[in-house]
Amino acid sequence: MKWTGLPAKIWMSLFVLFPFVWLLFLSVQKNSYINQSGPYGFSQFKRALNPPFSGIIVNSLVYSFAASVCVIGIAIPIVRYISQLPPRKRTLWILLCAIPLGLNFVVRIYAWFVLIRPEGLLTLILEYLGINSPLASTRAGVFMSMVYGYLPFAFLPLYTVFERLDPSQTEAASDLGAGTLQRWRYIILPAVVPGVVASFIFIFVPMLGEYLIPKMIGGGLVSSLGTQIESQFLGSTKPNWPFGAALSLCLLVCASAVLFIAVKLLPKGHSGQKSTWSILQIQ
């Protein structure tokens, strides 16, 4: 009998297994209110997987995926630039990129809201440029805020792989006739794939369940999986815990499926390359 694993087992039971089982139990209740227990069944799931809720789930998946891709697309050139700086400047830049992580998420999103509200600086700049589309309370605004909010989370996993890139590898590639694009395609990107997948997992999963941004920026007009679940549990009008539990389980299944696919897509690691898991463990 091994006792060393006991704290971990207790922790997992109390905070993962029990809530999960309770969520399962909740989700098979037929009625809207838990105290009016009735016959069990999967009607909540049926409701969750049919319009309009199936549309919301698909929407959340698509938007989270697109926003994750944008975040990584923006982060890669920045991280590449930082990783090539001389060590002292590099430390300063990493610090600057990490500062937002020290700020409360709500505070950061609120600050962003100040920029994109109708009389906000960003909106005014866009208007000046001739783009007259409101950002607050729109999908575009929510999307931009998602990208902004999750950008700092992508930096560190990406930085760990870019920092380890051996400059002589890219030199060797250009020596053998590779131009900039070919160096990225054949040398740099294959070497940083584990970091890209790690940061994708890092931002995609919380984005899928994100409700703060749609609620604050969307002003209740943009619905997402996260806001739906929140309103089923805490909503003032018609809370429905069993339905909320069913939606939560759908979210869990979606996130797990995407995680599974992301890891399956990875090429086998080789020496000198960190695996996605080791990067996730470090963070």
């Binding site: 002589s168 060797a172 250009s174 020596d175 053998l176 590779a178 131009g179 070497a191 390359q273």
Partner: peptide, 20 residues
């Protein structure tokens, strides 16, 4: 001229082989 346009190749001290 950039390296890719020179008709010469380098054998690196650490070999710099592509591990993938």
């Amino acid at each position: 001229l950039p390296p890719q346009q020179r008709d010469l190749n380098l054998v690196f001290q650490n070999y710099a082989l592509f591990p993938h």
